[in-house]
Amino acid sequence: MELPTRRWLLTRGALVAAAVTAPAAWAGPAQAALPVIDMEMVLLAAQVDPPKPDTGLTPGAKAHVLPVEQALTALGLLAASAVDGHYGSSTISAYAAWQRHLGYSGIDANGLPGVTSLTKLGEARFTVVNPVRAGSRTDAYGGRLVNTRTATMLAAADAAFGGDITLSQGSYTTEDPTSAGTHDGGGVVDISVTGLSTTQRWRLVKALRTVGFAAWLRTPAQGFPYHIHAVAVSDPDMSAPAQRQVHDYYFGRNGLASHAADDTPTEYRVPFTWWEKSQR
C-alpha cells in the first residue's frame, strides 16, 4: 500500500515529496541511550571495596562503578589502569578530587558520591537513579546532632524495638577521641544501653541492623563502657574510619582495630542491608 502512494507523490511534484521525506532526513542518527547508574550500588562499593587487599568486586556493583571510573579518567583524575569496576582507594581519591574541583571540602570531599557531584559527573555520560541523600545536617535525635536520614532510621529502629533510643553521642562531632574519627562525619551514633537487660540490648542491635545500620554492642571486654555503636550504611557524609567499619560489617567482623569476628549472637543477626533497600 505504501509504494503506490509514494510513487504518486513523486510524480505529482517534488515539493510534496520533500515535505513527506524531510522529517526522516532532519532527524539525524539515533543517539544511544546513556548508561543508568544506581547510586546505591556505587555507594555500597565505595564503602566495601577500598580496604580489600585485592581488587575483588562487590557483587552487583561493577556495571555501576565502571561508568563513574570512566568519567573520572576522561577528566584526568583517575589512571586508565584503575578503571576496573573496583571502587578502591584510587577511585576514592579521584572522586574526592572531583568533589574538590566542584568547590567542596571537608566531609563533602570524602570520595563518596553525593547526588549533586554524581549527577554533574554524569552529564552527557550517564543517568543517576536511586539517589541517596543525607538531608539536613542540623537535625537531632534525643538531643544529639544527626542528619535527616539518620534520624529517620533511628525512629524506625525505635519503633521496631518498642522502647526509647537514647543517644550518648551523635554525628559530626569530635567530642570523644576514643571514637577514632568515626563520628567526624554523618550517619554514626552511640546509643546508651543503661537500664536494658542483655536480651534487650541484643534486640536493639537487631532492630538497628534491620533498618540499615552496621551496629555492634560494645562491652568492657573490648575496652568500652557498655553501649551500641551504629553506622548508617551508605550515608554519603560518612568519614573514612566509619566507611571501614561498614566494610567490616559487610564481611561479618566487629568494626574494631582487631577486625575480629562479629560476636553478635546468631539470632540477632540480619542480612546486610541499608535504609533505602530495607524500605522496598
Rank of each mutant, 00 (worst) to 15 (best):
G85E: 10
Q279D: 09
A80Y: 06
P131W: 14
S239D: 00
A74Q: 14
Q31N: 11
P220M: 05
T73C: 09
D108C: 01
V231E: 14
D176H: 10
T55I: 04
K277M: 09
V193G: 08
W275R: 12
V189E: 11
H247C: 07
Y268T: 10
A27G: 02
T119F: 03
R100L: 03
A71T: 04
R100Q: 14
Q31K: 15
Y95K: 00
F126T: 12
Q31E: 15
S197P: 08
T178K: 04
V65F: 12
L34N: 14
G56W: 01
L44S: 05
A25Y: 14
W216G: 00
L44N: 07
R133C: 04
D108V: 00
A159N: 09
S197N: 09
R218S: 08
M153L: 13
A180K: 12
L217P: 08
R269F: 02
V65D: 06
A33R: 12
A27D: 12
D139Y: 10
V65P: 05
A157P: 03
T148Y: 06
T199Y: 10
D184P: 01
S192N: 15
A159K: 15
D184G: 03
L66E: 15
D263N: 08
S239L: 03
L72C: 10
I165E: 15
V20D: 14
Y249H: 15
M1E: 13
A22W: 14
I107L: 06
H227Y: 01
P265M: 12
V128H: 00
Y87C: 01
H101P: 03
D139C: 08
A124L: 07
L102K: 03
T173K: 03
Y172K: 02
G60Q: 05
A151M: 12
P67K: 06
Q222E: 15
A82S: 15
T173L: 04
T58K: 03
V146C: 09
F224W: 15
T58R: 06
G143P: 07
V48C: 06
W274R: 01
A159I: 09
A242E: 00
M39F: 11
T55V: 05
D176E: 10
L208H: 10
L72S: 11
L15P: 00
P59A: 08
D176G: 02
A97R: 14
P29N: 12
G163I: 08
L9F: 13
G185E: 06
A160V: 05
G181V: 07
N147T: 01
A74W: 00
H227W: 03
A79D: 15
S192L: 08
E175M: 08
S136V: 10
A96S: 11
T182F: 01
R6Y: 13
A207I: 04
D184M: 04
G103W: 06
A134K: 02
G195Y: 05
Y250R: 09
S179R: 08
A96E: 08
G111P: 09
A61Q: 01
W8H: 14
G185M: 02
Y95D: 02
A25T: 13
G85Y: 13
H247Q: 13
A19K: 10
D248C: 04
Q222R: 05
I92F: 06
A32L: 11
G181S: 05
A157V: 11
Y250N: 04
A22K: 08
A74F: 00
G170D: 10
A260W: 07
V115C: 01
R203P: 00
E2Q: 09
A261M: 06
